[in-house]
């Protein structure tokens, strides 16, 4: 646990003690299998932590700009998530450990990005209590199935409606939408309403 704390506090840059296992990198890299690396990681081996942390940092770098000030926080969450998954023996060896860590990093970063931008929806029942639930947590398998079904329906919605709603989701008011489409504001209002009805009807028909 000491090694974990060191990583969490120092971003993985400080070594507490030299590893008794590895003399140098050339000796370490070819000799360790993924499972050995996992075992040593779970055994609080500093070098193993360093290796996995390096993968995490390299894999999350492309998300740095989008995550902005939250990048460091996101990395901490990813480290804890990787540790949690490896402790639960989620790594089955179907792919290499590096690929597995990369997938976990990308999952986590995308979910973190979406969490940052996700809108909250206040239902009528809890208006008084000001409670909110997130609109798009797609973690479980059933939610993934729902997402697939909804995306299937979305493809059936006319492209014009998808364009209109893309503007709404970007926060454009009616006037700007009308200006961008070259139609009157009143026509825009009618089209938005019709698209809304069409979408609700398609969902109702599909029973979702």
């Amino acid at each position: 646990m000491q090694a974990v704390q060191n990583l969490v506090h120092s971003g993985g840059m400080i070594r507490t003690d030299p590893s008794p296992i590895y003399m140098n990198d050339t000796e370490r890299r070819p000799s360790l299998t993924d499972q050995q690396l996992v075992d040593r990681f779970l055994d609080n081996d500093t070098e193993a932590f360093q290796q996995i942390d390096d993968w995490i940092r390299a894999a999350s770098r492309s998300f740095r700009f989008r995550l902005g000030d939250h990048w460091e926080d996101a990395q901490q969450e990813i480290r804890l998530e990787v540790m949690r998954l490896l402790r639960r023996k989620s790594f089955q060896g179907r792919s290499s450990l590096k690929t597995y860590v990369w997938k976990v990093v990308c999952h986590s970063c995308i979910d973190y990005l979406r969490k940052q931008h996700s809108k909250t929806f206040t239902t009528l029942e809890n208006l008084g209590e000001k409670e909110a639930v997130t609109a798009d947590p797609l973690d479980s398998l059933s939610q993934s199935d729902t997402a697939k079904a909804l995306l299937g329906i979305l493809q059936k919605v006319p492209e014009e409606c998808r364009n209109l709603w893309r503007m709404i989701l970007a926060g454009l008011p009616y006037a700007q939408m009308a200006g961008s489409l070259g139609i009157s504001e009143a026509t825009t209002r009618v089209r938005v309403h019709r698209c809304r009805q069409k979408a609700a009807a398609l969902r109702e028909k599909a029973g979702i």
Partner: peptide, 26 residues
């Protein structure tokens, strides 16, 4: 009406699950 609007909103605000995106990228 809010309930119906939310159904439409959820539909238009639907994205590929992160698992699918990562698997597709790989």
């Amino acid at each position: 009406d809010l309930g119906r609007a939310h159904k439409a909103f959820e539909l238009f605000n639907q994205h590929l699950p992160s698992r699918v995106l990562v698997d597709y990228a790989a």
